[in-house]
Amino acid sequence: MRRRSHRGLAPAALCAGLALILTGCRTEGPVPPDAYGSGAEVATPRDRLNALNALDARVNAVGFRLSVANVELCPRTGPITGLLLHAESQYADYLRAAAREDWQLRGDLPGVAAVAPDSPAADAGLRVGDLLLSADGKPFLEGGPVGDAGFDGLSGNLARLADALYDGSAELLVQRDGQRLTVVLGSVTGCAYPFQLDPSADFYAKGDGERVFISSALAAFSPLDDDLAVVLGHELAHNILDHRAYFDEVGLARDVLGNWGVAPWELVRAEREADRVGLYLSARAGYDPARAGPYWRMLSARLPQLRMVQWGHPSAGERIQLLEGVAEEIAVLQAAGEPLIP
């Protein structure tokens, strides 16, 4: 399963932590059109939902592959299905009507927003637009009248689904196109760090030790799944390497100062480690590590400030040199049929 943030809201917690790129934080209100990518048609709420859903599906698919391929390297594992679920109650007012009409969402009931290819959810035949009514005979709660955008109701239903999947599978009652059907949803063991898309015009990605976040603007800027895997693999590496917990322990007043409370050379070391390990994670999932160099060149052309050394982050040039060296290292191992162990 995957969870997504309130549409129209980006959590302020993203302003602290181990971030690949951080150009600001948006805390409330509808996000501007450039949050959906320069080529997206976003004239109406429905256009915006479609653009977000396309990005959600990509992040969900790449995240699922990374999670399954690297389970043996992850300190935290659990059952994952390849499902991305959402609910009417999590959408802001300006998107809610379109979400309800397009996906037949009702209150807090979980609806299928995306299904990762080659996942248990795909094997079960679940489709975008399905509405989940119960799991193992226990109904999901619809909740009361929908007010402000919130996640608590859906979160409770996701917990019920997780309980049903505890033994590896769950029988779901599903509503599809006005009909009800029963499907059996299985799961596989994967890295238990959900991947989340946050609607924002800012360019950032973050691993906070619990989840992996990426802004919609950065996801839209990553044209190939191989490019997206470079970013998501980097943030997953931060979580696998437990960098957040380490810096919380050694940082000076990090809860107040964020990364400014940590020695910059320590942050640089962590970024280099995450670049190296993240590219291995990406390659282990079948993505092309040779895309890392061209992707970072493209990114630094879009964000010229990345060409310079920043607080706690190497310059883009240094990162490109390191990543291209790691890509060559991986290519040698692949040619020799050796396992990819970072």
Rank of each mutant, 00 (worst) to 15 (best):
A285T: 07
G312L: 05
A99N: 04
P304L: 08
L161D: 00
N157W: 01
G312D: 06
C15M: 13
S5L: 09
L20S: 02
G337Y: 04
G233C: 01
G37K: 11
Q90I: 13
G178M: 10
Q310N: 13
R48Q: 15
C15Y: 05
D226M: 01
A336K: 12
R96D: 02
D152G: 04
R307A: 10
D227I: 02
F213I: 00
D56L: 12
R272D: 11
A283T: 10
L322P: 01
G111S: 05
R65E: 07
D148M: 03
H238W: 06
P75E: 12
G125T: 12
V128P: 09
L257E: 05
L105D: 05
A51V: 06
D123Q: 15
G233M: 01
C74G: 04
D225S: 02
R291N: 04
L306P: 02
H238V: 02
A16S: 13
A274G: 06
N157G: 01
L181A: 12
L73Y: 14
E72G: 08
Q175L: 12
A40I: 10
S282R: 09
V184I: 12
D225I: 02
P289D: 08
L95I: 09
V68Q: 03
I341K: 06
W296V: 02
Q321R: 15
K138V: 15
R276C: 00
R284L: 06
R48C: 11
A205G: 15
A336L: 13
A245K: 13
R302L: 12
L172W: 10
L52D: 07
R48T: 09
